[in-house]
Amino acid sequence: MISISELNHRIGDHAILQDINLDIAEGEFAAIIGPNGAGKSTLIKLILGILPLQEGRIEIDGEPHLSWLKHNPMGYLPQDEKFDRRFPATAKDIVLMGLAAELKPAQRFSTSQKERAREAMERTGCWQQARKPIGALSGGEMQRVLLARAIVGGSKYLFLDEPEASVDQTGVKNFFVLLKELNQQGHTIITISHDLHTLTSFCSFLICLNKTLHCHDKTELINAETIHDFFGETTKIVHKSY
């Protein structure tokens, strides 16, 4: 369970998030939607301890988030991971990065850790690319590699920041099918997304954010057009029959 209460965040005089109160239960497939600048990335970066908390409380499994994060693996797929395409790493090296915190000085990855990396890559469908240099991977393949890295540590929570950004439309659908499978296998998923059509098919919980929290309810209760009217053009609508 992730519990956020009375959270405020500002940059200078500019309020980014105001009075956020939110509980995300285990097993949810939650999506955070909202226009650009709504504070979506800020919210998940605060939960993940990447940004310092200014005001309010965040608890994970009943423990203050920073202390929880110190001794638990957390799954996170950033929006735009910065890396040099010529960096001499294979896809498998990047997945093993998710286990590197377990290594003591002078220790190499054990057979069982390599086995866990293989299993994570099989689950996300990128084991075929294991030995490829990262520079040779397509956008979609890299996303799956980063997803494998996010789950390899065994985190029950999985945060994704606009995972569809670097993937084509078919890729997005397949990626969400994969996320749904991970969700059914027990991962709690929290994803930022613009693609309402895909979300309404997969998510159990929709978090609408625009500095303040506007609604968080079961997806089926929300009419996509209402959200569109509320948030404006930045939210992408693809018509589907309800």
Partner: peptide
């Protein structure tokens, strides 16, 4: 060397 911020997030 790959990505210091991500490495830090992953508790390396």
């Amino acid at each position: 060397s790959y990505n210091a911020e991500m490495a830090q997030f992953l508790r390396i």
